[in-house]
Nucleic acid binder design. Structure first.
Lengths: 357, 357
DNA sequence: CTGTCGCGAGAGAACGATTTCTCGCGGGGG
DNA sequence: CCCCCGCGAGAAATCGTTCTCTCGCGACAG
């Protein structure tokens, strides 16, 4: 309806030049006090607010940061996004949010589009640690880029947690609980986090005496995939002592399926998640999971991206500490070998009740 | 590092004027085929992409839409946001996302900031159905505004679901299950959705024979509030037949607390949620809840905001159908009066075991 | 043969800010 | 007394587009 006020109108109203209005608003040191007062009065009177588009064109800074995440619906990301948005606001900046849907081509297009919009920086959670490299490099040639949570190239800034250590905590805990056989349910290994977690899992588990190679299941971060993975595990044969999942979302899917088949967690099998989202708390039994400091990750990523000069490409890495959250899904009473054996029998009889589909 | 290519450089390379380059790229009808080919070659050669900031300044359209939501962390919103972002992309537009944190002042500031950025429209989920009105009106004076999920003013466009009908479904279901006494746990009634749900609840419940006014608990949409509300309910006296919650987040908090105190859902008390988020599926027992067509809401809101002329202020309303999702939290075996009485006794003895804090 | 009309493309004016450059005025020093 | 320097504020260029306006050329008609 109403056209916004321009700086010329303010200048006219105050009887000064547009340049002076700009100077006053920028807090330029040497302006006559009388003029300043007059212009401020006019600004107030007319309700003037600078057009940030024009500002951006002139100053080459939009006060805007782009963020590309693989999937907003994964409860992991909203927390990071919230922290990012909050920290950006502290710096007077706004967030352009994009969901790549875990698709490399989409991701590349979104990045190009963000560059077209002349964002001041990009926060990227690359969906594919190799296929996303090109887009990442292209972006970094234009603006500061910080990789968040996931990464694709070591020679660009990265904020996240040491996934291998974190997964190490999980497996160590399970071993401490007496587990000797494991199955891993992962999401797509193209994501750096998934790859690192998997690597750490393999490393931690291959030294266990009774370890035998178990099939690794690969799907996406979804409830449906967790359910499907549980079905596959049951079809394969004996239940392992523990099912280690790459995310809470997958783990709750697994839990759901196991429960549907009458398999008890943690008494028949232990299950772990990852990310310590609200799902882990709400699930029954509550999930043992790994809490990553999501707020800190988001906040730090913003600070890094805003404070990086466009020229300095350092490839710094910030690794924040993760924390094991122990839930009911791994609170098993320690068993003697004989008990463990009878447990297996019990599981087998359950398995036979499962209809092959 | 590298400065982006400008239209002048393309023009120079192609031996034409900037105007012609612009025309060619815009697909203007009458341009010489030879020139067009040359410019396209130059565009390709130099990898030219138009500066959307300059474009925006000239055309008065940024290809950007702002969205302000009360709390990204509530699993309800990411789904809407995802749909919004997806639909915007279909139209070549980007999303500026803001989290008001359910704070009216923040919300107002965010809206002003979005207007400064000359977004092409605003999607707003007003945190307070009265206090947000001013900001809403101010925004609507500048750009098309669509209220999403929550609303503050009837005379501006709104996309959501008929909350009263939806809550009606819940209560009707509970009555069908034999419930006669209820307690309602709501979030802050400043949100229009919360207010409507509450109103519908009161209306549906006041005609039940044995209905007696029960305390309504008010807090925010959080797990913690659900836990606290459950504690309060237990302190009050007899358990009701059903606890009706204003959102899944609150309901899972209630469930968690009840479970901690050894109260069985649904056998001791029925519990319902709202929103049918992933939490409702994951919870144990799975929650009876109301599914709102979140994707459709997001998609429609975008279509409305993008197709609305800046001048036309109609105050249209789109109400999409909601659906009752019945979970295990209300699957009660119908009881005879005598059984119901013994149930109450059982509850009382449980209550006595609750430590007063 | 000449005047006019139409079409295609370049020149240039916006868009609304910031910022450099320039100019005028006042004061101080030679 | 005059010149120069410095400071404060306005004029104007600039950012990179789009789009109107104008101009030139060719063709067709009178």
């Amino acid at each position: 309806m109403s056209e916004p006020v321009t700086i010329r109108q303010v200048a006219a109203a105050a009887g000064v030049s547009p340049a002076t209005v700009s100077r006053v608003l920028a807090g330029s040191p040497r302006v006559d006090a009388g003029l300043a007062a007059r212009t401020l009065a006019a600004v107030d009177e007319l309700g003037y607010r600078a057009n940030r588009v024009a500002q951006a064109l002139r100053t080459r800074s939009t006060g805007t940061v782009g963020m590309v995440v693989p999937n907003i619906a994964n409860p992991f990301f909203p927390i990071v996004i919230q922290a990012v948005e909050k920290e950006l606001r502290q710096h007077g900046a706004r967030l352009l949010l994009c969901d790549s849907g875990d698709d490399v081509a989409e991701e590349a297009e979104l990045i190009s589009s963000l560059l077209d919009h002349r964002i001041d920086g990009i926060l990227l959670s690359p969906c594919d640690r190799r296929a996303s490299q090109d887009a990442l490099r292209r972006a970094a040639a234009q603006v500061p880029v910080v990789q968040v949570d996931r990464f694709a190239l070591k020679d660009f800034d990265y904020v996240g947690v040491h996934q291998e250590d974190a997964m190490g905590l999980v497996v160590a805990h399970l071993i401490e609980q007496g587990c000797r056989t494991f199955t891993y349910v992962t999401s797509n290994l193209a994501a750096s986090t998934a790859a690192e977690r998997h690597r750490a899992y393999v490393r931690a588990v291959r030294d266990i005496d009774s370890y035998s190679e178990r099939r690794v299941h690969e799907g996406d971060h979804s409830l449906a995939w967790g359910q499907e993975a549980a079905r596959q595990i049951l079809e394969e044969g004996d239940l392992p002592d523990a099912i280690v999942c790459a995310s809470d979302l997958v783990a709750v899917g697994v839990l759901d399926r196991l429960r549907g088949l009458g398999i008890d967690v943690p008494n028949d099998v232990l299950v772990t998640g990852f990310d310590a989202t609200v799902l882990a708390r709400v699930a029954w039994p509550s999930l043992t999971s790994v809490r990553q400091p999501l707020e800190e990750i988001g906040k730090l990523a913003v600070q890094v991206v805003l404070e990086t000069e466009r020229s300095s490409r350092v490839g710094r890495t910030w690794l924040l500490p993760a924390e094991l959250i122990i839930g009911d899904s791994t609170k098993k009473i320690h068993e003697l070998p004989s008990q463990a054996r009878s447990k297996k029998t019990g599981k087998k009889s359950i398995r036979q009740a499962v209809p092959k589909s």
